[in-house]
Write a protein that binds this DNA or RNA. Structure first.
Length: 494
RNA sequence: UGCUCAGUAGCUCAGUGGUAGAGCAGGUGGCUGUUAACCACUUGGUCGCAGGUUCGAAUCCUGCCUGAGCAGCCA
């Protein structure tokens, strides 16, 4: 038998439970004499089992004369276990209490199913209603809209779709660590609270303990942040990159994986105010190596999910995105297209397509341009590199042409930018020039500049949006549906 | 933040100027193996909120609220 489930789901005991003597051989997490068997394990059983105990939530009940079917799901897998309850079960008289949504425990024999659709089913010898759910239970056994389910984020993980999404999310996080750990990358925890709004890009959430009604003021009327908790203005981080660079220049290859925050008033299907990001940073690495890693990384993640989440992926392929499997296979089997920004601009201009926004050198590529490249022209992920320095942040490494920086964006069909990265400017004189050009004060970046004074080395990295990657592998179209509790402008329930 | 669309039963939706509807969920009864079970009957409504036009408004107009799509910002 596999590992026993988490503490907290097993606070009650069957009334017929055996004495607790002789339990010392069991897992310390086992609380009963008949440990809970996961539905996933039950359904993959090699043969019938005389007595098993499963715990979960009722998905639906079907009554016939003299017996009932209970579908019990425990979140361990997409499928539910069918439980047969007839008069031989003492609780059959109360079967009407076992409604959709109720938490239940069932004990009995795992037997081959007489019916179609499942190999194994549980013949209930004993049922226990752990927690009832009355008829106001919001999750009915029918299709709900994603918008409605979003309003009940505390219950939607119990639905088929979100059960699958969050199992895949968990696996994807595991696969990310696995990818980097196998390659000798060191996992760095960069701070969530930061004093620098380094990138200057985007609004940040302020972190403060000052009285918002009556904050201490300077003589000129401005707020006196020297009397705040950190004795200076502080914010939630928008990126761990600058700190990751510190560790790249000590540990070589490192990565961060944690939440980041943007206070932008963004209302799109691919932006959230709080989201997770993976940021590898590699010393002695140039843009080429950066792009190579990005491509290898994405392919590793796709392959891992295909190999380990096939049942959940089948659900997405069936109900969310019919082309999902083909697209994932396609991406896996082909090299990403690599094209310089300059070439991309020329390609778009020669395409003959009439875009809403004109394509011109020196401007950011618009969503419609990115979409044309990935969805229409190349029909695969596209890595665009060497952008004009004017439209990129100060820390990106200047190219010899004096016009572009060693930046790269990976664009994927359906989502757009999934990775943004660059080789970093490792030359102090060039960095100082860039700081000045961007109107930034050298003193504010004293430690970042120190890295260029003491043992500076070429290095590069990128940021992958975790939720965007999850959208890509599941086909789920809205970022709010791949994060357990979405934070977007005007929304912080749960 | 701008543009566009939507808000009707617990849920998914129909109704577009004249007595508020269906499916599912809930209830009652039936059915020996169902699997979104099925069959019959049945409960259920401040038509997002506020104003206006009209003999009469779910329906037309205005404002507000909420949600969604697209765009910008980006991951």
């Amino acid at each position: 038998m596999g590992p026993i489930g988490p503490i907290g789901l097993m606070t009650e005991k069957m009334s017929s439970e055996a004495p607790k003597a002789g339990n010392s051989h069991r897992s310390p997490m086992s609380h009963t004499s008949h440990p809970r068997l996961k539905v996933k394990q039950a359904l993959s059983s090699a043969g019938p089992v005389e007595e098993v105990q499963i715990s979960g939530w009722v998905r639906t009940r079907r009554d016939a004369k003299g017996f009932s079917f209970l579908e019990i799901n425990d979140g361990s897998c997409l499928a539910s276990l069918q439980v047969i309850v007839d008069a031989s079960c003492p609780q059959y008289a109360q079967i009407h209490d076992y409604t959709t949504g109720a938490a239940v425990r069932a004990k009995g024999a795992l037997v081959a199913s007489q019916g179609q659709g499942q190999k194994w089913e549980l013949k209930a010898a004993e049922l226990h209603l752990v927690g009832a759910a009355d008829d106001s239970y919001p999750l009915q056994k029918k299709r709900h809209s994603l918008e409605y389910l979003r309003e009940i984020s505390h219950l939607r993980p119990r639905s088929n779709l979100f059960g699958a999404v969050f199992r895949v999310r968990s696996r994807l996080a595991y696969a990310i660590h696995q990818f980097f750990q196998e390659r000798g990358f060191v996992y760095v925890h960069t701070p969530l609270i930061t004093a620098s709004d380094c990138e200057g890009a985007g609004e940040m959430f302020r972190v403060s303990v000052l009285d918002p009604v009556n904050p201490p003021k300077n003589k000129d009327g401005s707020i006196d942040y020297s009397r705040d908790f950190f004795e200076r203005p502080t914010y939630l981080t928008v990126s761990g990159q600058l700190e990751a660079e510190i560790f790249a220049l000590s540990h070589g290859d490192v990565y961060t994986f944690g939440p980041t925050f943007r206070a932008e008033n963004s209302n799109t299907s691919r932006h959230a105010s709080e989201f997770w990001m993976i940021e590898p940073e590699m010393a002695f690495c140039d843009l080429e190596g950066d792009m190579d890693l990005a491509e290898e990384f994405i392919k590793h993640l796709i392959l891992d999910i295909l190999d380990n989440c096939s049942e959940d992926l089948d659900l997405f392929g069936k109900f969310v995105d019919k082309g999902l499997h083909d697209r994932l296979r396609f991406v896996l089997e082909r090299p990403f297209e690599r094209i310089s920004y300059t070439e991309a601009v020329e390609l778009l201009q020669k395409s003959g397509v009439k875009f809403d926004y004109p394509v011109e050198y020196g401007a950011n590529l618009q969503s419609e341009h990115e979409r044309y490249l990935t969805e229409t022209h190349f029909k695969r992920p596209v890595t665009v590199f060497n952008y004009p320095k004017e439209i990129k942040p100060f820390y990106m490494r200047q190219n010899d042409d004096d016009k572009t920086v060693a930046a790269m964006d990976v664009l994927v069909p359906g989502i757009g930018e999934i990775i943004g990265g660059s080789q970093r400017e490792e030359r102090l004189d060039r960095l100082d020039a860039a700081l000045e050009h961007h109107g930034l004060d050298q003193e504010d970046y004293w430690w970042y500049r120190d890295l260029r004074k003491y043992g500076s080395a070429p290095h590069a990295g990128f940021g992958l949006g975790f939720e965007r990657m999850l959208m890509f592998v599941t086909g789920v179209a809205n970022i709010r549906d791949v994060i357990p509790f979405a934070r977007t402008p005007g929304n912080a329930e749960f």
